[in-house]
Amino acid sequence: MYQIVNREDLTPEIHLFEIAAPEVAKKAQAGQFIIIRADEKGERIPLTIADWNTEKGTVTVVFMEVGKTTRKLATLKAGESVANFAGPLGLPTHIDKFGTVVCVAGGFAIATIVPIARAMKAAGNKVISIMGFRTKDLVFWEKQLRNVSDELIVTTDDGSYGLKGVVTIPLKDMLEGKEKIDRVIAIGPTVMMKFSSLTTKPFGVKTIVSLNPIMVDGTGMCGVCRVSVGDVTKFTCVDGPDFDGHQVNWDELMARQRIYLDEEKRSLELWQHSCGRR
């Protein structure tokens, strides 16, 4: 069992767990993920590592309530525990001195991009970050991302805060601008990563995305997370989760993310019914 040392609600549906897992904390690097299982009947789901503290022996993950598992996790309070927590898995994000790096994040992936932006800055890059949200009320970790960036742009779909529109608008402006962009890291919902990659492609700027397909074991055993990158099938759990966004077959990935839509709906409805939730 792994104790939740601290819990924060970043928005009504996005939660942060700081979990006691000293051995994982010792090895964690930006861009890696863990597999979490809420309880003995639970499924194994991957969550990207948002932060870690080797002294405290804790690892921080951030998740959004979507289906039964994430909603079940959201019912856990600080002091309670999850059944399993395995990691750090996957390859860390490639950090190097590239020059100017643009970090683009949408929704709950803001938490994932913070350690990457931090590492990029520590490696001597100029870091420009773009964070996108649906609306002002959902904005979180603005300060955290600002602290590790040279510049920060916030967008909201409805214009209630920062620039109006989606993250690809300022991204495109930047690519068309005078400053040379050497690398883009885009993390967020699949559709956002797809359009960020499409935006950068004509400019030939290397764009790294962090994919979030369905996983079971997370160690290369089952192959459900396979994704076509160029002409090659890769396993996201061991070969990724970072890939060249210009090479990813996005439509295939999005289809594969929908495999269990019906089952997930059924499972969630039954659970909500059984515990009288919304």
């Binding site: 009947k41 639970g42 499924e43 194994r44 039964k68 598992t69 079971v216 074991d217 055993m221 089952c222 192959g223 459900v224 269990y260 089952e263 997930e264 059924r266 499972s267 039954l270 659970w271």
Partner: peptide, 21 residues
């Protein structure tokens, strides 16, 4: 591996009592 892992390790044959479909 995936088919058997879901079925045996994760007990998908008892879905939705068990969470893995």
């Amino acid at each position: 591996n995936e088919f058997l892992t879901r079925t045996n390790l994760m007990k998908a044959y008892l879905f939705p009592e068990y969470d893995t479909p």
